[in-house]
Design a protein around this nucleic acid. Structure first.
Lengths: 351, 351
DNA sequence: CTGAAAGCGCTTACAG
DNA sequence: CTGAAAGCGCTTACAG
């Protein structure tokens, strides 16, 4: 027998708050959204009611009512490798989810490794005053200056995949590349076991922060724990298939004792053209690479690659969007929720 | 200058469909939700309008209007190990998200490894006619029968973490445990390199399907690729700390040549009590374990564990809920989106 | 078999 | 500084 309704598991609505506080819906809304123009005393009444009833805003309903659309711009490098294509796809999928997520995403393509072009694209994007901008950063003066201009214009910026110095941007959506390099070193060193010889490193360009950080992490662990292995100076293949192939072929020839290789950049295709024949002819070179492209997957299955480190471009894009929305609304970002993991794949745990 | 409004990027609403088809909102809704009582001809008109305008339903608005709440029941084993506690936590977090996700989740705890108790809990849950049930399965006759009764009552069932035969349940939210076992074998074998000796296996209980599958996968790869290693018969520690500790201590004593260990069950605590002293005294036993608990993380950092395979309980629970909702609504499940990954952690890529 | 109207929880002009 | 009313896109009784 119940004498009055406890409404036990009905969550309170703005109506309940308004009734409890003795004010109108509009005032409740003002307080809830920290909008100006409410007397301190009125504000307090509403806040008390919110606490008392344990009110939690229904975000979906709020969005519906707002009809708000977030215009975002994603600036991506026109880099023809599987990872960047995957990133592009992930952003395009986000574009398609736009109507549902209330975003309106513009994609701007810029030439790869071109700081001037990137800076120009940032300025052009700024002129359209979007609610936020995401970009794959290049650490160079014109880019840093252009990002500072975004900051001044009050436009939130998220770096994607490759970061910029702290303070310049609002958030970085990508993996810890130093940790990735360390992970690669541990796997390579342990897979090599007792074997002795030289280890090659193939980078895209050490002028990009993510490649540089991977190399640092890798070198740290190699000298800390695998000092018996001889790490060669890094080759820079500019993520170009033909160049990468040539560099690796030359290295294989000039270092007959090469038993390990860490490919820390993109563009596994050229690398594999050099490596597959060696592997098939029985030369055992333990190889750790990055990004689970179709080529990388095939190489794992074939045995040419021993491990592949991966960052999930889809996760990175979704995280960037969540963060941009939060920044646009002046809401806090829960860092632990936005951490992007370094995935390790071997032939047995391929998805 | 624009002569008429193209409404280019306004997505069409039910109103637009109604206008285009020349029917009322109610009829549009009936067609959209495949509800009965619409003349074939009317239905066609609406469908034509939907296609023509490229209508996509706003799910959030639909949910708001429905005010529908999904009552689900999660049946979990009262198993005192870190993984099961983590699973419990993940479900509790889902309970808290209930108001936002429009779910009303009941958690039912049952004794671990007790098929009768689990079957009884399933029947009791069925009596309350929830919109769906998730459970950590035990493959045994009473459980299979109880699940079949759910099926007959038209209640969707998802197995969580540990599966049941195909056909009995609607979906399995967990990892591919055979692949997990294979992954463990590859890591263990490769980390051992040229070393020769015996390899121990510690399971919880081979009567549970997930443990059994891991062991199968592990054995396959060991005999395929690391036949020079001597894999001992599996020990069954029932995920009990004291028992596991004793079993491993005994094995270490009776097999002085033991150089590898695969712990495929839960309960790393007991295992580590046996293993840490051995490790600290300089005995090198390459160890691969499951589930990234606090103990496992510490063991990775300390060097006692060499790799840890992990399944993300949070992902599994969220996937189970998505699937239960879809099944409750008679909607299709996108399998590729619900695949749960096997994460590999070493000391360098700890999150 | 079909439709007009009210309502889900919130926000937004517009008045006052 | 505050409130009454309309509306976001959809669904649901209730009439007919």
């Amino acid at each position: 027998m119940r004498f009055f309704d406890e409404q036990e598991d009905m969550r309170p609505t703005v109506h309940d708050i308004a009734a409890e506080a003795g004010v109108s819906l509009a005032t409740v809304d003002r307080v809830l959204n920290a909008r100006p123009g409410v007397r301190a005393k009125t504000r307090e009444k509403v806040e008390k009611a919110v606490t008392k009833l344990g009110y939690v805003r229904d975000v979906a309903a709020a969005n519906l009512a707002k009809g708000r659309i977030y215009p975002f711009t994603f600036i991506l490098p026109q880099n023809d490798n599987a990872f960047m294509r995957g990133l592009h796809d992930a952003v395009e999928q986000a574009v398609e989810r736009g109507p549902i997520e209330r975003t309106q995403i513009d994609i701007v393509d810029v030439p790869a490794f071109d700081a001037e072009a990137l800076a120009a694209a940032i300025d052009a994007a700024r002129a359209k005053a979007p609610a936020g901008i995401a970009l794959v950063a290049i650490e160079s003066a014109p880019v840093i200056a252009a990002v500072a201009r975004l900051k001044q214009a009050g436009i939130p910026v998220v770096t994607l995949v490759s970061d910029l110095q702290d303070g310049e941007r609002d958030h970085y959506a990508g993996v810890d590349n130093r940790a990735a390099g360390r992970t690669a070193a541990t796997l390579l060193g342990r897979f090599l076991g007792e074997r002795r010889g030289t280890v090659g490193v193939l980078a895209g360009s050490l002028s990009v922060r993510d490649h540089q950080n991977r190399f640092e992490g890798f070198s740290e662990v190699m000298s800390e724990r695998f000092a018996h292995l001889d790490v060669l100076a890094p080759m820079e293949g500019r993520d170009d298939a033909a160049l990468a192939q040539k560099l690796v072929e030359d290295a294989l020839t000039s270092h007959p004792d090469m038993i390990g290789l860490y490919s820390l950049g993109a563009g596994n295709r050229g690398l594999l053209k050099a490596l597959d024949p060696a592997h098939d002819s029985g030369r055992e070179i333990v190889t750790v690479a990055h990004e689970l492209s179709e080529h990388a997957r095939a190489a794992l299955e074939h045995g040419t690659f021993d491990a592949v480190l991966n960052q999930d471009a889809g996760h990175e894009v979704r995280s960037a969007i969540r963060v941009l929305k939060a920044k646009a609304d002046g809401l806090p970002v829960i860092d632990s929720q936005e951490r992007i993991r370094i995935d390790i794949f071997i032939k047995d745990n391929l998805p």
